[in-house]
Simulated scan of single mutants.
Amino acid sequence: MIKRWAVASATLAPVALIGGWTVAAARRPDEFDQVRDTISALAAIGAHERWVMTAGIAVTGVCHLVTAAGLTGARPAGRVLLAAGGVASVLVAALPLPVAGHAPAAGVAFGALSAWPLFARTPGSRAAGVVLLAALAGFGVTLSQDAYVGLAERVLAGAQVLWPAATAWYLVRDR
């Protein structure tokens, strides 16, 4: 079960995040390397037109909160983790690099958004949780090696923002 408005928010989230990083990076073609540089660099203090990525991250976080509230077909523990990922995402937007709270907020967001499917108990959620946690581990490796960080982050963040949408559309179709 799912509320129809939650389908709209789950659908908006990938548009906001992926659209945000695409537009923000396009506005900085000479300065930004999507394979090397993080999404947060697009919203960092002093970044050219940082409002684009900041808005994308904030809207995505709010969408996760709304989706969690309306995703009644998922177990409460999964919904709480999805909501926690949404709150942490809003904090990521509110605490841009190099603000000290940015990294912990991003860590909570990435962790919660990777783990929520394991607790949601919706169709395909266990497999999605395993894939998201593997992508999170891969991102951690790239951070420690300082190689392909931007690419690994986009793979992880893209998968994390698409899974709630896939779940919402499946549940509304199954109604």
Rank of each mutant, 00 (worst) to 15 (best):
A6R: 03
A6L: 09
V7R: 12
V7C: 15
A8T: 15
S9R: 02
A10F: 10
T11H: 11
T11I: 12
V15P: 03
V15S: 06
A16K: 01
A16G: 06
I18A: 10
I18C: 10
I18S: 07
T22E: 02
T22Q: 04
V23E: 02
V23S: 02
A26Q: 10
R27C: 08
R27H: 11
P29H: 12
D30N: 13
D30V: 11
E31D: 14
Q34H: 08
V35P: 02
A41R: 10
A43F: 01
A44M: 08
G46R: 10
H48L: 04
R50V: 03
W51H: 13
G56R: 00
G56L: 00
A58G: 11
T60G: 01
T60K: 00
G61Y: 02
G61L: 04
V62T: 01
V66E: 00
T67C: 04
A68Y: 01
A68Q: 01
G70V: 05
L71T: 03
R75W: 03
R75D: 08
A77F: 00
A77N: 01
L81D: 02
G85A: 12
G86A: 05
G86M: 04
A88Y: 05
A88D: 04
A88S: 09
L91G: 07
L91A: 12
L91I: 07
A93S: 06
A94C: 03
L95I: 00
L95G: 00
L95A: 04
L95N: 06
P96Q: 02
P96S: 06
L97Y: 03
V99I: 09
A100N: 05
G101H: 04
G101E: 04
H102D: 06
H102W: 03
P104G: 06
A106I: 08
G107R: 05
G107P: 03
G107T: 09
G111I: 07
A112T: 13
S114T: 11
S114N: 07
W116Y: 15
W116V: 10
L118A: 06
L118M: 07
R121Q: 13
T122L: 10
P123W: 10
P123S: 12
A127G: 12
A128W: 00
G129I: 06
V130R: 05
V131D: 00
F139A: 08
G140C: 11
V141C: 14
V141Q: 14
T142G: 13
L143Q: 15
L143M: 15
S144H: 15
S144K: 15
Q145S: 15
D146E: 15
A147F: 14
A147Q: 15
G150W: 07
L151H: 12
L151S: 12
A152D: 02
A152R: 00
E153S: 12
E153W: 11
V155Y: 05
A157Q: 13
G158C: 08
W163D: 02
W163M: 06
T167K: 03
T167W: 04
A168I: 11
A168M: 12
A168L: 11
W169K: 13
L171C: 09
L171Q: 11
V172L: 14
V172A: 15
R173G: 15
D174H: 15
D174L: 14
R175K: 14
